[in-house]
Design a protein around this nucleic acid. Structure first.
Lengths: 98, 98
DNA sequence: AAAAAGTGCTTTGTAATACAAAGTTATATA
DNA sequence: TATATAACTTTGTATTACAAAGCACTTTTT
């Protein structure tokens, strides 16, 4: 039988990743710079958290050219959405249902 | 102006500490061994997380003798309850209100 | 009475984060 | 030509998280 904290997804312990996911759940697409500004992160910090979420296939990274300039946008994957919603459910269970 | 993740309390990022707090919010008192079993932790790991919460004055530690045996029980402090509820509010804001 | 087990830690050691800052490649603009 | 922007990667450091072992003491078992 699982204890209450095992149901929480370790990937979402971190506040930055919680922030990224919650932004991506309500925004179809968010690009590197908007994310960076909304969460007030350094480039490297954002890149590394995104990379962690990408490795788990929770976030999809799209790279395109706008003219000759690169543009990177992020989307949540179906798996990521599911994982996040499960995490929220586990959180709610933890917080309200004893 | 604060960004959304700054409102989350860093002390509650961790799943073990989230678990401890949520148990203490619905139980007047919980002793060392019950906490340990409910969260399935090693002695040292529980002790260190409790100590972190104690340092923040979020948890009160009561040591007493039951016969000649020591017994340690934990309670959430008023400050801790406040901090935790604020954290939950911030979480809800993050998760539901965009 | 000796050995084993339990209470509640602390210490030790290791591995995994988290993060800032600087460096990088390439394009863009003044 | 010099500066700026985009999107990283690298480097280095400091902080966690955790298991396992050790410890002092008491209690239970044999």
């Amino acid at each position: 039988m699982k204890n209450i904290i095992e149901q929480l997804n370790k990937a979402f312990d971190n506040r930055v990743r919680l922030g990224i996911m919650s932004i991506l759940l309500v925004n179809e697409e968010v690009d590197f710079n908007e994310m960076k500004e909304r969460l007030d992160l350094t480039d490297g910090n954002l890149a590394s958290h995104i990379s962690a979420l990408e490795k788990l296939d929770y976030v999809l990274v799209k790279k395109e050219f706008v003219g000759k300039k690169t543009k990177t946008t992020y989307q949540v994957s179906i798996l990521g959405k599911k994982a996040f919603q499960d995490h929220i459910k586990a959180l709610e269970k933890l917080l309200h249902k004893k």
